[in-house]
Nucleic acid binder design. Sequence first.
DNA 1: CTGAAAGCGCTTACAG
DNA 2: CTGAAAGCGCTTACAG
Lengths: 336, 336
Amino acid sequence: MVSIKQVAKQAGVSFKTVSRVVNNDPNVREETRARVQEAIAALNYRPNRAARMMRNQQSGVIGFISDEVVTQPYAGDLLIGAQEVASQHDKVLMVVNIENDRIGRQRAIDMLLERRVEALVYASYYHKEVQVPQEMLQVPSVLVNCYAENETLTTFIPDEVQAGYDATRLLLEQGHKRIGHITLNPDIVASVKRLEGYRKALAEAGISYDPQLIVQGESRFDEAGDSASVEKAVAELLKLTHQPTAFVCGKDEFAMQAYFEFSKRGLQVGRDIAVTSFDNQRMIAPGLSPGLTTMALPHFEMGQAAMNSIFNQGDDMVTRLIPFSVIERQSHLLKN
Amino acid sequence: MVSIKQVAKQAGVSFKTVSRVVNNDPNVREETRARVQEAIAALNYRPNRAARMMRNQQSGVIGFISDEVVTQPYAGDLLIGAQEVASQHDKVLMVVNIENDRIGRQRAIDMLLERRVEALVYASYYHKEVQVPQEMLQVPSVLVNCYAENETLTTFIPDEVQAGYDATRLLLEQGHKRIGHITLNPDIVASVKRLEGYRKALAEAGISYDPQLIVQGESRFDEAGDSASVEKAVAELLKLTHQPTAFVCGKDEFAMQAYFEFSKRGLQVGRDIAVTSFDNQRMIAPGLSPGLTTMALPHFEMGQAAMNSIFNQGDDMVTRLIPFSVIERQSHLLKN
DNA sequence: CTGAAAGCGCTTACAG
DNA sequence: CTGAAAGCGCTTACAG
């Protein structure tokens, strides 16, 4: 790779002058600048960012610790949001994905700290609690889509309660009074918080809460995609004497399976039953018929917000709730 | 951040001695080594990787240009595979995701080259042709899940023909003679090559090719997830006088929609109709009932292979086909 | 407007 | 076994 000295030699100036041209220092004679620029173009010179930053005592890189965000569907939008803001500030992201047996958290942080990252983003593919490694505190750090018990770091998480509220509200507005809710694994935050939102919406509408309408679509030990549990959940809800006319599904996969269960029974979403859901999996939601109305996780927005907070160090340590987007398709409406 | 000099001072040695200890040079007296290590621990010293690499004229970083691989479902496994191999070689990945309006290709390559990446991986989220920017040729580069017309670079792509063959073969082995094929957009490689595999399997089984059995599930201008086209495709195939008894679906989303179309007509996959598909979307394939038999794209393996080729520069420029994995669930079997 | 010196945090020869 | 010098590619004062 060609260095500043070679450019200087080619242009017949000192390497300091080349540095001036590269950095747009106005104190260079036009004629000199042109000559240097010519040499730069001729040699295809690119300033060595690392050398420059070493002198300035900053690396220009931000560490992004990905707890599977790049392998889970669309959670990668977290990264995109973060990258967008970082690149506006002329920083580059160094991504390390950690996963069970592969690269561990310790290794990831070591690699990043040896590179002198200016800040650290720790992002999880689903909303959960994490143990923050002590070393993260050595540089400005934020948590995205996850939180620490002791609240030591600025945190960005999705507003699950609001999402649960919205998903339920959409159905209430259509006049439904009996709304079934097929929940996620009860150990995860999303499950608990969304149920809270569901109850809040009911309460607000003056409808009393009926625990019979709440069934788990996912037990604590479920394999991903186990369709048997949704099958059972739907069966259970439909055999109630006072049947639900609408369903809030814990995720789009549940909704997909529920559509099948309805279909088996001759029931049709959009005609006999209304459905809302969570996640907006682009693989599923638009492809169902009718299209699935669902609450999209604010992955991109969380990534952006997290990175913005890094550049606005004035902010105190806070936990910020980022709203879901309500993606309205047809499944929450009934047409006769 | 603490530097080698501060450690030296603390330990009462020259900074060169600290360097020796850090690099496990045997020529250090045990007692000295112990003293230095103590100082390192006390100050929580971490060698500055960038400084070290600058002296050695290598950055230790490999550029990963992601053409949406981190945002598309499971394509991120490409990154994971690449990262795994890179980290075995003590290299770290610098990921830049390029996307329409956000960061462009030129910008991405500039950022990476300014960081003096030792090699470049260009990965696409689906198998397609790309224009390789000239600048990529300045460093060792490989293409993953995409290819260049002029074959200037080592390339790793999925073996579409074999996958098409396998998907069809599974059905032929069950005795099916009439196999419908719902294809992807005919402009993409996967569509063409898989059809080639389909025909090869038929020919081998001595079954003549019937163009009536081939319908597009996706037109050239389709929106993602448009369910209308699969609805039409299935209808068209089922109204043939000599109906197909099995279907090869171009992707799992098609299969999901086809399941619904069958269900509407009282047909059941696994009893009346056999299905195979492509992609192994974990969001869909295991959740369908019966579970969908599908060809999984070798994302992880392609990432690994690409990175390995970077470290084995002996290899000549080649195009290597990476096999899909056949994920057998129940949908290709008929049980009476 | 231009340049020579010093230094960022390291490692690579070379001395002792 | 240990250290002083030089240098990687830059930028930051300071001279002229």
